[in-house]
């Protein structure tokens, strides 16, 4: 009994160490991200100047421009990773991410329509993007429903509906190729020019979503054992699957509404978390959340500093750096997962 509790503590210890390391990295990244940019400061300088009385350029840049952007990156990274982690259990498919359930395609459809056909309503873009994402997701689930929701049917109806919506978006873009810059920025997911206003809106949604995602841990774990096993353990499989999907759609749709489509985070981060702490959602979900925040903040910081005078959208940085890194992780520790 004694060795048992000791061993149990070892598992918790491992997760705690990983979490603490990731949180330290997050703190360092926040500090670095606040310091670097077109105007570079040292950390000491930032600390001194922001606590000074009165207004000064350092204070304005750090507090009004960089800080909200840093916090947004953290929130979005956390939400997208949590969303992807939950969906991978819902679908029992390692390739599931928020794009699978139509969140990206739905938001893109709504955004292109607003930006290209009704530019007068650009101000309410986030609202429409959210609604589009939710609607596409609902459509996919209702098409997949046949006495219950089967993951394969969700994925297949997702492919079908995503392709229809994709075709519509492409057609719109072809017909309006002269005014595409706004749409392109949305499609590639960018945090450029985001302020406290967006942060405040998103914070409410994301925090609700993230709290809800912790309620999903037990059912996410049970779904990993297969539907029949989960059912015979007393889990309401359909209800769990829908609740988990709803939480992850809510999280992903909120981020899409504010920052556009940032791919790859929801797919890759849960896998890296799994390699670090294993498949148990009790450890994997919190680690995914913090790791997602780390990675998105890093990607955004790189994107806005690597080429002086130019911003590379975080979605593009994410895809370019994330892919090879993921492959590296897979080859290095692939024996544990994915066979």
């Amino acid at each position: 009994m004694h060795t048992r509790t000791v061993r149990k503590k070892c598992g918790v210890l491992r997760m705690s160490i990983v979490l603490v390391v990731l949180l330290v990295i997050l703190a360092v990244l926040c500090a670095v991200s606040a310091a670097v940019g077109s105007a570079g400061y040292t950390i000491v300088e930032i600390l001194q100047r922001t606590f000074e009385e009165g207004s000064n350029p350092v204070k304005v840049i750090v507090l009004n421009l960089r800080l909200p952007r840093i916090l947004l990156a953290v929130l979005i990274g956390a939400s997208l990773s949590s969303s992807g982690a939950l969906l991978q259990s819902v679908m029992r498919n390692p390739l599931a991410d928020p794009g699978t359930i139509g969140v990206s395609a739905g938001a893109a459809t709504a955004a292109s329509t607003i930006l290209l056909l009704i530019p007068g309503m650009t101000g309410s873009l986030p609202l429409f993007a959210f609604a589009g994402a939710a609607l596409a997701c609902f459509l996919i689930y209702s098409m997949a429903w046949k006495g219950g929701v089967d993951p394969t049917r969700i994925i297949l109806s997702g492919v079908a509906i995503n392709s229809v919506l994709g075709a519509y978006t492409s057609l719109l873009q072809l017909l309006n190729s002269d005014s595409l810059s706004g749409v392109l920025a949305f499609m590639n997911g960018s945090l450029s020019g985001k302020s406290w206003y967006q942060f405040k809106t998103l914070a409410v949604y994301c925090i609700i979503g993230l709290i809800l995602s912790f309620f999903c841990i037990k059912s996410a774990n049970a779904l990993q054992l297969g539907d029949e096993m989960a059912k015979s353990l007393g889990v309401k499989v359909n209800a769990s699957r829908i609740f988990l999907s709803a939480v992850s759609a809510f999280l992903a749709a909120s981020t899409v509404a504010v920052a556009g489509m940032i791919g790859f985070v929801g797919l890759v981060v849960p896998h890296i978390a799994r390699l670090l702490v294993g498949s148990d959602y009790k450890a994997m979900l919190p680690v995914s959340i913090v790791l997602g925040a780390d990675i998105l903040l890093l990607a955004d910081t790189i994107g806005r500093t690597i080429v002086p005078g130019m911003e590379i959208p975080v979605g593009i940085v994410m895809a370019v750096c994330g892919g090879p890194f993921f492959l590296y992780m897979l080859r290095k520790k692939g024996g544990n997962y994915g066979n």
């Binding site: 990993q224 054992l225 297969g226 029949e228 096993m229 015979s232 498949s279």
Partner: peptide, 17 residues
């Protein structure tokens, strides 16, 4: 689930459990 336990023909667990 407290009265009957079932071991289905097909079941799977993440390999690292």
């Amino acid at each position: 689930a407290r009265c009957v336990g079932v071991l289905p023909q097909r079941h799977s667990a993440p390999p690292d459990f």
